[in-house]
């Protein structure tokens, strides 16, 4: 790893001015789990590393009945998983955070770092999109808030401008929404998801409304399955509906091919994942009825 200057701002304004001073020759570091790997593989060689490690205020997790959940960007995966606030107000989020990577990485990696790195083979983005999350970004000119959808631009690319820091993630109050999240590994020995899927919907006496169905890890950035969502609106899920939705999802997803799996395989898993998450949401057993 190339030598670099290591800066540890003790406040957000200080961090922002350091970033401004060093411009593109510097990198932000949160937990460091992704950044250090990239630096050691010499994919990145910053002159300066600005560590956010001392900004404890960015680790806060809070709930407000009107505003919903606010998760500091520096909250570690283990903090999110273990937070009683998250467990109370969005248990599916706690489950997602507690099931990604492995215990050591969860103790160190942050949810903000995860989103900012925008590696497709990760979990939080898919879930958070379905939850309708927004993010707050601090810059020299002040704060801006934008939907996560707009934040995630492409493979390893976000809407962060140089000198900006992701400070928080907001989840709207869940209301009567049901949220489900599933991740699929290609084999049990792999650890990164090859496909993941999140469903968020209001179930009104059986019929679905306000459906959000997001697949991730299969695509450069998590993809909303818009046609499938439309198809599902107003329907009560049964085996036939789930199968039809699965076929739609398989048709509309635009999967990537890489060293871990090709597009055809991912498409098949997306179909499967769609069918299963819908049946799970409806309390039906997917094991009986193959698509």
């Amino acid at each position: 790893m190339r030598p670099f200057d290591f800066l540890e701002p003790s406040s957000l304004p200080e961090a922002l001015s350091m970033l401004a001073e060093h411009g593109d020759a510097c990198c932000i570091m949160a937990g460091g789990t992704a950044l250090l790997l990239a630096m050691r593989q010499r994919m990145l060689a910053p002159e300066t590393v600005v560590s956010l490690g001392k900004l404890d205020e960015l680790r806060d997790i809070a709930f407000d009945p009107d505003a919903g959940l606010r998760i500091g960007a520096l909250a570690r995966h283990a903090d999110v998983a273990g937070s009683s606030i998250v467990q109370a107000h969005c248990p599916a989020l706690a489950g997602m955070a507690g099931g990604l990577a492995n215990p050591q990485v969860r103790n160190q990696g942050t949810i903000g770092g995860n989103l900012c790195y925008a590696d497709p083979a990760t979990d939080p983005a898919t879930f958070l999109l379905a939850a309708g999350a927004e993010v707050t970004i601090a810059g020299r000119g002040g704060e801006r808030r934008l939907p996560l959808r707009a934040f995630l631009v492409d493979y390893f690319t976000t809407a962060l401008e140089s000198g900006e820091i992701l400070t928080a993630i907001h989840l709207p109050p869940p209301g009567s929404r049901q949220m489900l999240y599933r991740r699929y590994l290609r084999t049990p020995a792999e650890h990164r998801p090859v496909v993941n899927i999140a469903l968020s919907a209001v179930t009104d006496g059986g019929a679905l409304s306000d459906v959000r169905l997001i697949v991730g890890a299969a695509t450069p950035v998590p993809q909303a399955l818009a046609q499938t969502e439309d198809f599902l609106a107003g329907k009560s899920v049964n085996a036939a509906i789930a199968a039809e939705a699965a076929a739609l999802a398989g048709a509309e997803v635009e999967p990537l091919s890489d060293g871990r799996a090709d597009a055809a395989f991912r498409r098949q898993i997306v179909r499967t994942a769609t069918r299963r998450i819908l049946l799970d949401a409806a309390g039906l057993d997917w094991k009986d009825n193959a698509a």
């Binding site: 084999t187 049990p188 020995a189 650890h191 990164r192 871990r260």
Partner: peptide
């Protein structure tokens, strides 16, 4: 192409 332990996947305890 997969000369690392993340991509050459030997089973961990949770896979067994």
């Amino acid at each position: 192409m997969n000369g690392n332990l993340a991509d050459y996947t030997m089973p961990t305890a949770d896979a067994l």
